Simulated scan of single mutants.
Amino acid sequence: MTISGLSSFEMDRVKQEIADSFDEELEMEIDESRLESMFQDMSDHPEQEQIDRRVYFRELFRLQHELVRLQDWVQHSRQKVLVIFEGRDSAGKGGAIKRITQRLNPRVCRVVALPAPTERERTQWYFQRYAAHLPAAGEIVLFDRSWYNRAGVERVMGFCTENEVEEFFRSVPEFERMLVRSGITVLKYWFSITDDEQQFRFQMRIHDPLKQWKLSPMDVESRRRWEDYTRAKEAMLERTHIPEAPWWVVEAVDKKRARLNCISHLLEQFPYADVPKDPVVLPDRVRYEDYTRHPVPREMYVPEKF
Rank of each mutant, 00 (worst) to 15 (best):
I3G: 10
G5K: 09
L6F: 07
S8P: 01
F9L: 05
F9W: 03
A19W: 15
A19G: 15
D20R: 13
L35G: 12
E36P: 04
F39L: 15
M42G: 06
H45R: 08
E47I: 09
Q48Y: 00
Q48M: 01
E49K: 02
I51K: 12
I51N: 09
I51G: 08
L60W: 00
R62G: 06
H65A: 05
L67G: 01
L67W: 03
D72K: 12
H76F: 11
V81Y: 00
V83R: 03
I84M: 07
E86I: 11
D89S: 11
K93Q: 12
G94L: 06
G95P: 00
R99Y: 09
I100L: 07
I100F: 04
T101H: 05
Q102V: 05
L104Y: 02
V111G: 11
V112S: 14
A113L: 05
P115G: 10
A116S: 15
P117S: 10
E119S: 12
R120K: 07
F127L: 11
Q128I: 12
R129C: 14
Y130A: 05
H133W: 00
A137D: 01
L142V: 06
L142M: 05
R155Y: 02
M157I: 11
G158W: 03
F159H: 06
E162D: 15
E166D: 11
S171W: 01
V172K: 00
L179F: 00
G183A: 06
G183F: 00
I184R: 00
W190R: 08
S192N: 13
T194I: 08
T194V: 04
T194C: 07
D195P: 06
Q198T: 03
Q203S: 12
L210S: 11
W213V: 07
W213P: 05
M218I: 15
D219Y: 06
V220F: 08
W226I: 15
W226H: 09
E227T: 09
Y229R: 09
E234D: 13
A235P: 01
E238Y: 08
R239F: 15
A245D: 04
P246Y: 02
V250I: 13
V253H: 11
K255T: 01
E268R: 12
F270H: 03
V286K: 13
P295R: 10
P297A: 13
V302I: 14
P303L: 11
P303F: 13
